[in-house]
Every structure is written in structure tokens, then in C-alpha cells.
Design a protein around this nucleic acid. Sequence first.
DNA 1: TGTAGGCTTTAGGCATGCCTCAATCTGACC
DNA 2: GGTCAGATTGAGGCATGCCTAAAGCCTACA
Lengths: 214, 214
Amino acid sequence: MKPTTPAAEDYLKTIYAHTEWQPDPITPRVLATRLGIAPSSVTEMVKKLAADGFIAHVPYGPLTLTPAGRIRATAVVRRHRLIETWLVRELGYTWDEVHDEAEVLEHAISDRLLEAIEAHLGHPTADPHGDPIPAADGSSERVPAVLLADAAPGHAGTVLRVSDRDPAVLRALAEAGIGPGSRLAVVDATTVRLPAGELHPLAAEAARAIWLTS
Amino acid sequence: MKPTTPAAEDYLKTIYAHTEWQPDPITPRVLATRLGIAPSSVTEMVKKLAADGFIAHVPYGPLTLTPAGRIRATAVVRRHRLIETWLVRELGYTWDEVHDEAEVLEHAISDRLLEAIEAHLGHPTADPHGDPIPAADGSSERVPAVLLADAAPGHAGTVLRVSDRDPAVLRALAEAGIGPGSRLAVVDATTVRLPAGELHPLAAEAARAIWLTS
DNA sequence: TGTAGGCTTTAGGCATGCCTCAATCTGACC
DNA sequence: GGTCAGATTGAGGCATGCCTAAAGCCTACA
């Protein structure tokens, strides 16, 4: 199988991550925005990734991972999430501080080190944000979930995952004591009720970052 | 101060490491060999590093670090050695397995993570090979030492440091139970006497990799 | 003193991965 | 069915960091 550069891995990871949160395949425009680069740069890299068999792409169409691309992507995601877990559990990081560090380290650690960290942590199945950590074979469990922003008023559930994309959202939630495992009831799109009964306002970004049990 | 790329840091680190083991300044040729690249590539990078104030160089002359270059170099060495220490102490690596991993990670971890690892390890002063770990301000203790290959027959001393460059040498020494802290007596350039009295043959590379108390 | 051979530098190229700017396509709306 | 905005692509450039090949320098030895 063709080797992948750190840049290529970021593309694959971002395409994969999009499918975890959205049903529709990602477009070049959105991918460029996520990666913080120009759309034309995406065009170029997409050409290479398609030629190498990692993504399927017809001109002017959306981007989807091939099975080979999905394997690569889940390997990167696995690294990212194990590193995040390690930083929080072993080195005193908080869940809003780990993303940028993991973003770099995921391209730097060897398979050997990854396995050592995983064993050291006792083979965790989820990272500090509740995101599932894919197994070495790429498999990962999917739990039925609903985005808080999409949940009907009155819906109650347990927080399964919180997107690690926006540190400010994570800090605000941590301050409110909300994290994976928290019980929440949806009052409306911007308000939730905590177990103690108190109402808590949520920014729109926060409502789009939280997945609840359905 | 000018930022440095991973490639530039490798140059500075290698120039610095040379001064730790050899009194003469390094030449472009030797630097190219150490880095595994063509001499002309060194010429180019040297031009940039000199322009940025990190090394002093007159055409056709040897390479020496400026104070700014030395600060940068010791910072990289500090990272490298703390990472090696962490891999051995926390993750079950042996001392011959850590070099390549640290070579990559030293360019990837943040200052924040470096400090966290250092604190986690209890601020070690030497890595698994006995190499001193520079403090955050760049200072590091220098102990009078003699290269085993240069030691007079009959000289006895404690192993202070073993170069981490050649994993095969490290494995052979580990097998013989020789490491930092070991007592050795020099019989000749290729033989040492262990504390138990037995003679042990040393490859020439090993004799040039071991520093003894003088 | 002259010159061979090694070291260093220069010149010109290549791959990666980004950019801007301009051209082309697509889909939605009139 | 035509038009237009926005998305996508293509062309041409730039920085980094490596390469090979050729030219220039330097020294040691005859």
C-alpha cells in the first residue's frame, strides 16, 4: 500500500471525521475550510489521494473514502485519540488542551510506541471526549446517538461524546460539570436541564458538539 | 529569535553533539555524513543558519555554533534525552530502541508537554545512556571523562556515558551488563576487565562509544 | 614550486504542499 | 431556457530541503 505523508493523513482524517458527525459526504470547499487551506490546494491533494486509491472522486463531486482510505483514516484517528487519552490520564492535561498536541504527535509516533501507550493505558475504548478509539484492525463500535442540537425538546439522555474541535466549548462544559456520562434533558435548542434540576444555557456551538444517547 | 525548522534543528543538534565528543569543530563533510545527506545540502543549510545567526562559518572553514545556536541546540538535546528517558522508564523500551523514536518526537512535542514529561519523571539529570540532560536554561554539568578508546591500559573507572548512536553496540553492552555506573578496567584498546575479574572483548566502535571517569 | 586529490561550493533540478488569480463548471432561480 | 453566484479546477509561483554534476579552493607531498 502507498505510504502517506502527514499532510495526506490530515486530509483522510478530516474526511473520515466528517462522516462521523454528518451523513453527507464532504465537499472540497468544506474540507479546505476545515484544514484552513485554499480550495485549490485541496484539488491538488485530492488528485494524488484518488490516484493512490484512498479516496473516490469525480470532478466537481463530493469526496468519499475508499476502503483503503478508511483504513488509513481510522489508523490516524486511533493515534489521535490514544494520544489524547494518554495526555489527560498521565500528564495532567485537561480535555480542552489535548487537541493541538495530538494533532502533531499523531504523525510522529511509531507503531511500536502507539502500542506501548495503548497497553500502558489498559486498552481504552474511548478518549476523554467520549470519542471511540478504533481498534488496531480499524474496527470501532458505533452507539446510536443524537446530536443535542437535533434532539426534540424533552429528550433526556446521557452524554456520549463531545467534539474536541472547539476548546472554548470544552472549557465551558467542564465548568458546568458536563462531560461524557452526564445526564441531560433537552429543554430547547439552547437550554438543558441538569440532574440537580437546574437549567443551563448552551451556546449554539455547544449544542452542535454534544451527542446524547437516543 | 528566528524560528527553526526540524531540519535546521537536526543540523544544530549534530554540530553540538560533535563538540560533546570531539574537541575539534565539525566540518561540512562530517556533518553531511552524520546526517546522511549530500555535502552540497549542508552548504545550503549552513548558509541559512549562518544568516540567521546560529552558526559561525567562513567559506571552506569548519562550523561552530554561536551562543544563539548553542541555546537552540541544547534545547533540542534536552528534548531528545528527556524523551529517551521517558520511553525507557515508562514504556518498557530498552536503551538501544529509543534513539530513532526520540529523533522524531524531539521535533513534535510542545514545550508544555516537555515540561509535563520532565516533572512526571522527577527532573532527571541524565538519560538512560548517561548523557546529561540540559536544564531548561541550557546549562548542563560536565564531568571530567575519558573515552575508553583513548584510556591508558590499566586505567580503571566508572562508565559515565555510552553513545546512543549505534544500537548494536548498546545491545552488546547490555548483554555484557555494561552501562552507566559499571566499573571497568582497561586492559587494552579492545579488552576490558569487569568487576568480577573476567575479561571482556570490546569492538572498536564500543571502545569509542564509552566514556569513563578519568 | 607544482600539482593531484579531497573538500567545499555553485548551478540546476525535483518533490511536497502551500498560495493567488483566472477559467470553468454546476445548480438554482427567474 | 438563460443567467449568475458560488464551487471547483487549472496555471503559474514560492519556500523548504533534498539531489547530482561540475567548478573552485586548499593542502600536502613530491
